[in-house]
Nucleic acid binder design. Sequence first.
DNA 1: TATTTTTGTTAGTCTAATCTAACTTAATAT
DNA 2: ATATTAAGTTAGATTAGACTAACAAAAATA
Lengths: 229, 229
Amino acid sequence: MITKINVYFCRVNSLAEENYLKAMFSLSNDKGEVNVNDLSKRLEIKMPTVTSMMKRLATKKLVHYESYKPLKLTDKGKKEAALIIRKHRLTEMFLVEKMGFGWEQVHEIAEQIEHIQSPELFAKMDELLGFPKLDPHGSPIPDKNGTMVWVAYNKLSECKAGDTVKLSAVINTSAEFLKFLNSRELSLGLKVKIKSVEPFDNTMVVSYGKRLSETLSHTVCERLLVEKV
Amino acid sequence: MITKINVYFCRVNSLAEENYLKAMFSLSNDKGEVNVNDLSKRLEIKMPTVTSMMKRLATKKLVHYESYKPLKLTDKGKKEAALIIRKHRLTEMFLVEKMGFGWEQVHEIAEQIEHIQSPELFAKMDELLGFPKLDPHGSPIPDKNGTMVWVAYNKLSECKAGDTVKLSAVINTSAEFLKFLNSRELSLGLKVKIKSVEPFDNTMVVSYGKRLSETLSHTVCERLLVEKV
DNA sequence: TATTTTTGTTAGTCTAATCTAACTTAATAT
DNA sequence: ATATTAAGTTAGATTAGACTAACAAAAATA
């Protein structure tokens, strides 16, 4: 006799749990610590609720919890969080690059789709996007194992005349800023040569692609992250 | 003073409620009636739970509920259900046609994505798919208002020699059957002419596209729905 | 028609996830 | 150093959504 075992939908962590993990991940300071209060504010959930959830996540070995001490994700917790962020960022990229959404439209949708349980779906997005390492904000996309590769970027504004750099990421993306980048044909991966820096206002004159002399304001250069080449 | 009103996420019906509505819709008989028992079995949820949910859906005017009488969706309930089915079918089609999934892989994923709250996402899928009226099973896709257009189909097996018909839908799709159709270049929308019907076993000889003489078994003809042209 | 079976309901329990009120510990400021 | 404020916890209530056990109504059958 065969016993039927239903494994339709094996959700390891609930939707609520996933949201706590993700928020903790993004709020962690350099020591990996988070305050109950900050978490409470971020999630718009009252502190006692947060405390009780932390106790639960601790029994699941996702969080180190000790009364009155700062919260910390365990390695397991970090990995789970990174995998959710992976799904979020892949979704955002997919919506923008493959479905024609505007960048400002996709966050809300990705907030929901990041909870979908289907490794195949996200593997397919990854494939169709060409296995990107960074999303259009320049934030790293964790890999299938939840590993996030952080590259040490420099701001373009910190480079000096004569440097040749690769455009790798963008800080504090706004729809307007992305439109500006588009209008100047500035895209991630682009090689840019710094021709001169105006000492008065830190404006840079750069060349790239077919554009041999473009001027970028300091405000713009502060928001562009580059790798030296 | 401005009062902040958060309307981040206005989920009208919970995930559980949506699943009840969808199940009721698909179990409804010609009178639009469903039994508590059948619903309970379909959802794998015990009858008392179903009863109590029905009372809740009744207060939300989604279900007509009277003790010991068959359940019925209200018009409002039917509409909500149809909209979920719309999302499910658009998702399945999108996964197959735009992302390269196999038909057998997409149901599970669509079961989750159908609950995503984002009219924009599904409008975009609809657009990218060219506003399809039928999914690859030949099931109708409800429109944005939850209206489902049912076309009166005939089985191919019920047609006679000399008829020319348009292939419009498929009954009881299995991965194997769809593979078979692919291998013979039989696709929805295709015009097929019936050359002869073998009276012994009801096998049909048909021509279509570049194939001037293909033989289709009765089993296959029983599963192909057509419109006369 | 009377009995049995199936279907549906009621009552009460449980867990997840939220809340408020009251209390405790830690941090800040006088 | 003490008083005040901020941060964190405990206790207890609430709602959604599930369950089991027991009962009631309707349908099927003898």
